[in-house]
Protein backbone atom coordinates (compact mmCIF):
# COMPACT_ATOMS: atom_id res chain seq x y z
CA UNK A 1 0.00 0.00 0.00
CA UNK A 2 1.29 3.44 -0.94
CA UNK A 3 2.54 5.60 1.94
CA UNK A 4 0.38 8.57 2.84
CA UNK A 5 1.60 11.79 1.29
CA UNK A 6 1.30 13.55 4.65
CA UNK A 7 1.20 11.91 8.06
CA UNK A 8 0.88 13.69 11.37
CA UNK A 9 1.26 11.52 14.47
CA UNK A 10 0.30 12.98 17.86
CA UNK A 11 1.54 16.41 16.92
CA UNK A 12 1.33 19.02 19.67
CA UNK A 13 2.36 22.65 19.35
CA UNK A 14 2.23 25.25 22.09
CA UNK A 15 2.77 28.99 22.01
CA UNK A 16 3.47 29.90 25.60
CA UNK A 17 0.50 28.59 27.58
CA UNK A 18 -1.75 28.38 24.51
CA UNK A 19 -2.03 24.89 22.96
CA UNK A 20 -2.47 25.47 19.24
CA UNK A 21 -2.35 21.79 18.26
CA UNK A 22 -3.32 19.10 20.74
CA UNK A 23 -2.15 15.60 19.79
CA UNK A 24 -3.25 15.89 16.19
CA UNK A 25 -3.04 12.75 14.07
CA UNK A 26 -4.13 12.48 10.47
CA UNK A 27 -3.17 11.19 7.04
CA UNK A 28 -3.60 12.70 3.59
CA UNK A 29 -3.39 10.24 0.71
CA UNK A 30 -1.42 11.05 -2.45
CA UNK A 31 -3.32 12.96 -5.11
CA UNK A 32 -6.20 13.86 -2.81
CA UNK A 33 -7.49 17.21 -1.67
CA UNK A 34 -7.98 17.58 2.08
CA UNK A 35 -9.87 20.60 3.33
CA UNK A 36 -9.31 21.58 6.95
CA UNK A 37 -12.40 23.28 8.25
CA UNK A 38 -12.78 25.14 11.51
CA UNK A 39 -13.37 28.50 13.17
CA UNK A 40 -10.65 31.13 13.57
CA UNK A 41 -8.05 30.18 16.16
CA UNK A 42 -8.69 26.44 16.02
CA UNK A 43 -5.16 25.60 14.84
CA UNK A 44 -5.67 25.16 11.09
CA UNK A 45 -2.91 27.57 10.07
CA UNK A 46 -0.55 26.20 12.72
CA UNK A 47 -1.05 22.72 11.35
CA UNK A 48 -0.20 23.91 7.86
CA UNK A 49 2.90 25.68 9.13
CA UNK A 50 4.01 22.55 10.99
CA UNK A 51 3.67 20.51 7.78
CA UNK A 52 5.67 23.17 5.90
CA UNK A 53 8.39 23.22 8.56
CA UNK A 54 7.79 26.84 9.47
CA UNK A 55 6.92 25.70 13.01
CA UNK A 56 8.57 22.84 14.87
CA UNK A 57 6.19 20.55 16.81
CA UNK A 58 6.75 20.27 20.55
CA UNK A 59 5.91 16.59 20.33
CA UNK A 60 4.84 14.09 17.72
CA UNK A 61 6.05 13.46 14.20
CA UNK A 62 5.48 14.83 10.74
CA UNK A 63 6.15 12.57 7.75
CA UNK A 64 6.06 13.34 4.04
CA UNK A 65 5.84 10.28 1.77
CA UNK A 66 6.85 8.13 4.71
CA UNK A 67 9.97 10.15 5.58
CA UNK A 68 10.17 11.94 8.92
CA UNK A 69 10.65 15.63 8.30
CA UNK A 70 9.95 16.95 11.83
CA UNK A 71 9.86 15.35 15.22
CA UNK A 72 9.55 16.64 18.76
CA UNK A 73 11.55 19.87 18.95
CA UNK A 74 13.65 19.05 15.87
CA UNK A 75 13.56 19.74 12.18
CA UNK A 76 15.02 16.87 10.16
CA UNK A 77 14.28 18.40 6.78
CA UNK A 78 14.23 22.20 6.40
CA UNK A 79 11.26 23.81 4.59
CA UNK A 80 13.07 24.42 1.32
CA UNK A 81 13.93 20.75 0.96
CA UNK A 82 10.39 19.42 1.50
CA UNK A 83 9.25 20.05 -2.07
CA UNK A 84 6.15 21.91 -1.07
CA UNK A 85 4.08 24.70 -2.53
CA UNK A 86 2.50 27.19 -0.12
CA UNK A 87 -0.08 29.88 -0.81
CA UNK A 88 -0.18 32.23 2.17
CA UNK A 89 -3.31 33.97 3.38
CA UNK A 90 -1.89 37.37 2.48
CA UNK A 91 -0.20 35.87 -0.61
CA UNK A 92 3.27 37.22 0.34
CA UNK A 93 4.16 38.14 -3.23
CA UNK A 94 7.63 39.71 -3.36
CA UNK A 95 6.94 43.37 -4.10
CA UNK A 96 10.29 44.19 -5.69
CA UNK A 97 10.01 41.36 -8.27
CA UNK A 98 7.74 41.15 -11.29
CA UNK A 99 5.33 38.25 -11.71
CA UNK A 100 7.84 36.39 -13.86
CA UNK A 101 10.69 37.17 -11.45
CA UNK A 102 8.63 35.81 -8.55
CA UNK A 103 8.49 32.49 -10.41
CA UNK A 104 12.14 32.68 -11.52
CA UNK A 105 13.28 33.07 -7.94
CA UNK A 106 11.53 29.83 -7.03
CA UNK A 107 12.87 28.02 -10.09
CA UNK A 108 16.40 29.22 -9.28
CA UNK A 109 16.48 26.79 -6.36
CA UNK A 110 15.39 23.74 -8.38
CA UNK A 111 18.73 23.14 -10.10
CA UNK A 112 16.97 22.73 -13.44
CA UNK A 113 18.48 23.86 -16.74
CA UNK A 114 17.53 27.27 -18.04
CA UNK A 115 15.32 25.93 -20.88
CA UNK A 116 13.48 23.70 -18.42
CA UNK A 117 12.97 26.64 -16.04
CA UNK A 118 11.57 28.68 -18.95
CA UNK A 119 9.19 25.89 -19.86
CA UNK A 120 7.93 25.48 -16.31
CA UNK A 121 7.42 29.21 -15.83
CA UNK A 122 5.51 29.44 -19.10
CA UNK A 123 3.36 26.42 -18.22
CA UNK A 124 2.55 27.70 -14.73
CA UNK A 125 1.51 31.11 -16.04
CA UNK A 126 -0.61 29.44 -18.74
CA UNK A 127 -2.21 27.08 -16.25
CA UNK A 128 -3.51 29.98 -14.15
CA UNK A 129 -4.15 32.10 -17.25
CA UNK A 130 -1.94 35.11 -16.51
CA UNK A 131 0.68 34.90 -19.29
CA UNK A 132 0.09 38.52 -20.24
CA UNK A 133 0.87 39.73 -16.68
CA UNK A 134 4.39 38.33 -16.52
CA UNK A 135 6.09 41.73 -16.67
CA UNK A 136 3.97 43.46 -14.04
CA UNK A 137 4.69 44.06 -10.37
CA UNK A 138 2.32 42.77 -7.69
CA UNK A 139 1.04 46.24 -6.80
CA UNK A 140 -0.08 46.64 -10.43
CA UNK A 141 -2.41 43.64 -10.24
CA UNK A 142 -5.97 43.17 -9.00
CA UNK A 143 -6.76 40.92 -6.03
CA UNK A 144 -7.79 38.04 -8.24
CA UNK A 145 -4.71 38.39 -10.43
CA UNK A 146 -2.43 38.44 -7.37
CA UNK A 147 -4.16 35.29 -6.19
CA UNK A 148 -3.36 33.55 -9.47
CA UNK A 149 0.27 34.69 -9.29
CA UNK A 150 0.55 33.23 -5.79
CA UNK A 151 -0.85 29.97 -7.10
CA UNK A 152 1.49 29.94 -10.10
CA UNK A 153 4.44 30.54 -7.81
CA UNK A 154 3.37 27.67 -5.57
CA UNK A 155 2.96 25.12 -8.39
CA UNK A 156 5.86 26.15 -10.64
CA UNK A 157 8.46 23.92 -8.89
CA UNK A 158 6.06 20.96 -9.34
CA UNK A 159 5.76 20.33 -5.61
CA UNK A 160 4.65 17.02 -4.18
CA UNK A 161 2.25 18.76 -1.81
CA UNK A 162 0.36 22.05 -2.15
CA UNK A 163 -0.64 23.89 1.03
CA UNK A 164 -3.14 26.75 0.89
CA UNK A 165 -3.93 28.94 3.89
CA UNK A 166 -7.37 30.56 3.35
CA UNK A 167 -6.21 31.90 -0.03
CA UNK A 168 -9.62 33.25 -1.05
CA UNK A 169 -10.55 34.97 2.21
CA UNK A 170 -9.87 38.51 0.97
CA UNK A 171 -11.87 38.19 -2.29
CA UNK A 172 -15.48 39.10 -3.06
CA UNK A 173 -18.06 36.33 -3.41
CA UNK A 174 -18.12 36.18 -7.21
CA UNK A 175 -14.35 36.12 -7.60
CA UNK A 176 -14.14 33.61 -4.80
CA UNK A 177 -16.50 31.24 -6.60
CA UNK A 178 -14.53 31.56 -9.85
CA UNK A 179 -11.19 30.90 -8.21
CA UNK A 180 -12.60 28.07 -6.14
CA UNK A 181 -13.59 26.26 -9.30
CA UNK A 182 -10.23 27.12 -10.83
CA UNK A 183 -8.42 25.57 -7.87
CA UNK A 184 -10.52 22.42 -8.08
CA UNK A 185 -9.77 22.13 -11.80
CA UNK A 186 -6.02 22.57 -11.22
CA UNK A 187 -5.91 20.08 -8.40
CA UNK A 188 -7.62 17.42 -10.49
CA UNK A 189 -5.55 18.17 -13.59
CA UNK A 190 -2.25 17.89 -11.70
CA UNK A 191 -3.38 15.15 -9.26
CA UNK A 192 -1.69 17.26 -6.64
CA UNK A 193 -1.88 16.32 -2.97
CA UNK A 194 -3.46 19.43 -1.50
CA UNK A 195 -4.23 20.63 2.00
CA UNK A 196 -6.56 23.60 1.98
CA UNK A 197 -7.39 25.52 5.14
CA UNK A 198 -10.65 27.44 5.31
CA UNK A 199 -13.58 28.38 7.51
CA UNK A 200 -15.99 28.39 4.52
CA UNK A 201 -18.02 25.21 3.92
CA UNK A 202 -18.57 26.12 0.27
CA UNK A 203 -14.82 25.68 -0.30
CA UNK A 204 -15.06 22.19 1.15
CA UNK A 205 -18.03 21.32 -1.03
CA UNK A 206 -16.15 22.20 -4.22
CA UNK A 207 -12.61 21.16 -3.36
CA UNK A 208 -12.59 18.34 -0.82
CA UNK A 209 -11.98 14.65 -1.18
CA UNK A 210 -11.67 14.65 2.60
CA UNK A 211 -12.93 17.18 5.10
CA UNK A 212 -11.00 17.46 8.36
CA UNK A 213 -12.97 19.30 11.03
CA UNK A 214 -10.94 21.02 13.73
CA UNK A 215 -11.78 22.84 16.89
CA UNK A 216 -9.57 24.14 19.71
CA UNK A 217 -6.45 22.47 18.35
CA UNK A 218 -8.02 19.05 17.92
CA UNK A 219 -9.29 17.05 14.98
CA UNK A 220 -12.97 16.36 15.66
CA UNK A 221 -13.80 14.34 12.59
CA UNK A 222 -12.54 13.29 9.17
CA UNK A 223 -15.03 12.67 6.35
CA UNK A 224 -13.67 11.23 3.11
CA UNK A 225 -15.85 10.79 0.06
CA UNK A 226 -14.53 11.56 -3.42
CA UNK A 227 -18.06 11.69 -4.78
CA UNK A 228 -18.86 14.61 -2.45
CA UNK A 229 -17.06 17.06 -4.75
CA UNK A 230 -19.32 19.00 -7.06
CA UNK A 231 -19.14 22.14 -9.05
CA UNK A 232 -21.63 24.57 -7.49
CA UNK A 233 -21.96 26.33 -10.84
Amino acid sequence: MKAAAITLTDVTKRFGSHVALDSVSLEVLPGTAAVVLGPSGCGKTTMLRVIAGLEVPDSGQVLLDGTTVSAAGRTHVPPHRRQLGFVFQDLALWPHLTVRQNLDFVLGSTGLSRPEQERRAHDALALVRIEELAGRYPHQLSGGEQQRVALARAIVPEPRVLLLDEPLSSLDAELRADLRSELARLQRALSLTTVYVTHDRKDAAVLADCVIEMRAGRVLAVHCDRSRRHDPA
Partner: peptide, 19 residues
Protein backbone atom coordinates in the same frame (compact mmCIF):
# COMPACT_ATOMS: atom_id res chain seq x y z
CA UNK B 1 5.65 36.31 5.33
CA UNK B 2 7.73 37.50 2.40
CA UNK B 3 10.73 35.68 3.81
CA UNK B 4 8.70 32.63 4.78
CA UNK B 5 7.43 32.39 1.23
CA UNK B 6 11.07 32.31 0.16
CA UNK B 7 12.05 29.72 2.79
CA UNK B 8 9.55 27.25 1.30
CA UNK B 9 11.68 27.11 -1.85
CA UNK B 10 15.14 28.44 -1.02
CA UNK B 11 17.82 28.22 1.64
CA UNK B 12 17.98 30.98 4.29
CA UNK B 13 21.11 32.38 2.66
CA UNK B 14 19.43 32.67 -0.72
CA UNK B 15 16.36 34.26 0.84
CA UNK B 16 18.58 36.82 2.57
CA UNK B 17 20.35 37.66 -0.70
CA UNK B 18 17.41 37.57 -3.08
CA UNK B 19 14.45 38.74 -0.98
Amino acid sequence: RLEEAGLIVASPGRVLRGI
